[in-house]
Amino acid sequence: MSYTPKWVSIGPIHHNRESLWLTKEKKRQFREPFPFLDERDEELRRKMGNWEARVRRCYSEAFQGISSGEFVDMLLTDGCFIVALFCRNYKWSKEGVDATDNPIFSTRWMLPEIGRDLLMIENQLPLFVLKEIFNATKLKPEGTSFEEVALEFFKSFHIGKGAMVIKKHHTEGHHKHLLDLFHSLYLPPKSSDSGAAQKRRKNKKPLMGRTSVRGKNWVPNATVLKSSGVRFYAKEGNSLGIQFRRGTLSIPGISIIESSIIILKNLLAYEQSSRGIEPLFTSLVLFFSSMASVPDDIKLLREASIILHEPGDDQMAIEVLKLLSKQLECDVTDFSMKQQVEDIRAFCGSKKAKFWKPIGRICPARFILLCLSIVLAVTVGRYD
């Protein structure tokens, strides 16, 4: 169910599913009250007809049950709906234009539900189709690109704490579809990429012949890390911006709630579908599943505001991480947190960590009492 839309189908995989609320007619009605396409409407339809074979090749199925005319109509209906939704949202959020004449905007829960549907891996249209429609619409906000209005819509779907900040490099480059564009929100600027990542993105070739690692044990769990002298700090920003320096592990908060889990599952499925895609969230989930293996680990990370979920459900969070990390594979020489993992492991093997480890197993109050007892014994011994 995490990969099946609940409200609106986009593209051919779930085309014309009767159980969805946003039917073909409702999608068309969404753009009726305002001018949308100019005199290039027929020109756009002809272009979509010429692109039909190209678009069909973007999917693994042939969809022989969808005729040529129906396929082109689907591209226009679904594409126009998405563009209208993003443009109206942009004008509403940036320019204060009232959009509450439509139930999608006037109903508080509906926009998030539809947004999650648009980020499902089985619910995508090629981005070049959406950009062509965007360039033909009268509703297009002046001086904006399709990527800008799309990311403005999706920035509140950030899986971490708070909304994502959109920067210039997020709107640049080639993107396959909306899920790929959303995934790019978490990529670092190209100037800070590793050499291997830059080369892969430039050549668009899969990584072959690399050793793969599955599952866990990248780093010790959180309770062991704490007993080794590691301090935990919840930082702001990108969920993937994990840092380790001088014994302090800084991790942005991550939400373990149903809505963010659905988005995370689709991002993981997308990364696992090709070796040419940066395994950002694969690394994140494998890192957390290594660090949080028992409820006490979750409790420690929750109290540090790193894992955000309801108290009392620590075992549930463990089960979620187990489910997410199941059968995930990642190239051990190229995962995005390689340096942090190496630094943490080196710290835990240091003399400092070995000194703190037995001390960390004693609760702070008992440790203080033990120190006071030693001081008292030494003091009394002097007077004796």
Score class of each variant (00 low, 15 high):
C371G: 08
R382Y: 05
K204T: 02
P126C: 04
C363I: 14
V55K: 09
E122S: 11
R45V: 06
H15R: 14
I166N: 10
L280T: 00
E147P: 06
I10P: 02
R214Q: 07
L376Q: 14
S373E: 13
V55Y: 14
K140M: 12
P12T: 00
E319W: 12
M74D: 08
E113G: 06
G229I: 04
F36C: 10
K204R: 12
E258L: 01
S290M: 03
E148G: 04
E310A: 08
K26Q: 02
L301Q: 02
N203M: 14
F36L: 13
F288T: 05
I114K: 09
K352F: 10
E113V: 06
V129W: 08
D101K: 01
V380S: 12
V230R: 06
G253L: 03
K199F: 09
T223L: 11
G209N: 13
F146P: 02
S293H: 10
G247M: 05
D334G: 13
H177Q: 14
K205V: 03
I242H: 00
A196K: 05
S212A: 03
P188H: 05
I261V: 14
Q340I: 15
V213L: 14
F287M: 14
A150T: 11
P35Y: 04
N50Q: 14
R17L: 09
L323I: 00
Y383H: 06
S293P: 05
F288L: 15
A292D: 01
W92D: 07
M164Q: 11
F63I: 07
K138L: 12
E132P: 05
A150V: 11
K202C: 10
F232L: 08
G11K: 07
T23P: 05
K235Q: 02
W356P: 00
S273G: 12
A304E: 07
R246F: 11
Q198E: 09
K131P: 04
V97G: 04
W92C: 09
E236Y: 11
S255E: 04
V149I: 15
K226R: 15
V165T: 14
G143T: 13
N89P: 03
G215F: 03
L370I: 00
S67V: 00
S106I: 07
R302Y: 03
I104N: 00
S273R: 12
M74Y: 07
I307Y: 13
K140P: 13
E147I: 07
L268K: 09
G349K: 14
S336D: 12
K26A: 01
G79S: 10
D78T: 02
E310P: 03
A136L: 03
P206I: 08
S60T: 00
S250K: 15
R275D: 14
S191P: 08
S156C: 08
T211S: 01
A304V: 01
D331L: 10
L369I: 05
T107Q: 11
P358F: 00
H170C: 14
R116G: 11
R88Q: 07
S250N: 09
P188I: 06
A292H: 01
S145N: 06
F367R: 15
N266A: 04
S239Q: 03
H309W: 10
S145H: 09
L139G: 12
A53K: 15
A353K: 07
Q340M: 06
K140F: 02
D297N: 11
K176P: 00
E310R: 08
K47S: 11
I257L: 13
F34E: 07
K235W: 02
K138R: 13
I277K: 03
